[in-house]
């Protein structure tokens, strides 16, 4: 019997130690997911958390914060002059500031002022490229430098992609501030990944085959970052044997032709989206050098021929190829 009297205190001590350990080391929690049609796409929020109410309300506030930002941009466009930008709400100013840095990072290949040309393009079936005259007139209003030089004049900025990225980032921050450590905010393939998977492994993100969107070409294992892809297969039409897609080169006002898709890993979804567009326009040679020179940025280029693929050094050992079928 003596050793039984010894075991009882030991059991209590073990219980207490377990509780102390547990309070520091909370388990991974349960999986929650919801999607919402917003920003012209499907936004998916996946998160792992404890407590149903907490998770549900966090997802709802994430959607609300996205809706607020979305309401500031009409079809991804905003009409603004360089001097007048200060009168806009904070998210708009923030997006314009980021657009300016992206313009510089991509050597002008990402240029928000492309808006006055992209609104000439209609990517519905049976449409045609814009007339050369109107294209020329539109191009006169393209160039962030021009905008800065004529600070009083209104320009049409196409910030659809990066505004979407910005909204995703804001939503992800909402989740992070609420204490969620493992979450994905995915806006139609532009996504911000918080932390790692709840099992401690990196997130595994698949990349679509640009010509067979039902297939995947490969995947990347990444954590605590953002991923975005610009592909020529999202909006396009055929006209007289030519294929016209929605990623326009600000120099020519015509679709950029060197890639089928560019996937970018960057710290935020806004940067990732802007860089994906810019690097797509720059192509797999110039774009590759730019991507390589940037810290915390990796890129995957799929060439226009669809056969070659080029990865920046930092992503090579985190990329896995998938056999196509």
């Amino acid at each position: 019997m003596k050793n039984l009297h010894f075991v009882l205190p030991v059991a209590i001590v073990v219980t207490l130690i377990s509780i102390a350990f547990l309070s520091k080391h909370r388990s991974q929690g349960e999986f929650y997911r919801d999607s919402c049609l917003i920003m012209d796409t499907v936004v998916d929020v996946n998160l792992w958390g404890k407590g149903d109410l907490d998770a549900r309300s966090a997802i709802d506030s994430a959607f609300v914060s996205i809706a607020k930002i979305d309401s500031l941009f009409k079809e991804g466009m905003v009409r603004v002059s360089w001097s007048g930008r200060e009168h806009h709400p904070i998210p708009t100013r923030e997006v314009l500031r980021l657009a300016d840095s992206l313009y510089r990072l991509t050597l002008g290949a990402f240029d928000p002022t492309i808006g006055s040309v992209s609104r000439l393009w209609d990517f519905s079936d049976g449409s045609q490229p814009p007339q050369p005259d109107s294209l020329k007139a539109g191009l006169r209003m393209v160039g962030l430098e021009k905008m800065k030089n004529v600070p009083g004049k209104d320009f049409i900025l196409d910030v659809g992609g990066i505004a979407k990225g910005y909204a995703i980032d804001v939503a992800a921050e909402v989740l992070r501030n609420r204490g969620f450590e493992s979450a994905i905010v995915n806006g139609g393939g532009d996504m911000r990944l918080l932390g790692k998977r709840p099992d401690g492994k990196p997130w595994r993100i698949a990349i679509r085959d640009p010509r067979h969107p039902g297939n995947l070409i490969g995947y990347i294992d990444v954590e605590d970052c953002a991923v975005a892809t610009s592909g020529d297969y999202e909006r396009f039409f055929f006209y007289e044997g030519g294929r016209y897609h929605h990623i326009l080169d600000p120099k020519t006002g015509m679709p950029a032709v060197q890639c089928q898709s560019v996937t970018v890993v960057a710290p935020t979804a806004c940067i990732a989206d802007g860089l994906a567009t810019g690097l797509f326009v720059l192509g797999p040679r110039k774009g590759f050098d730019v991507a390589k020179s940037l810290e915390n940025v990796e890129a995957i280029f799929i060439y226009a021929d669809g056969d070659s693929i080029r990865l920046t050094p930092g992503i090579q050992n985190r990329f896995g190829e998938l056999a196509s079928n």
Binding site: L8, A11, I12, S18, F21, L22, H25, S27
Partner: peptide
């Protein structure tokens, strides 16, 4: 009984981690 219950609780909590 107390000892058994205590041990059971301790292991139960430990397992959850």
């Amino acid at each position: 009984m107390g000892m058994l219950a205590g041990g059971a609780v301790a292991l139960y909590v430990f397992e959850a981690m």
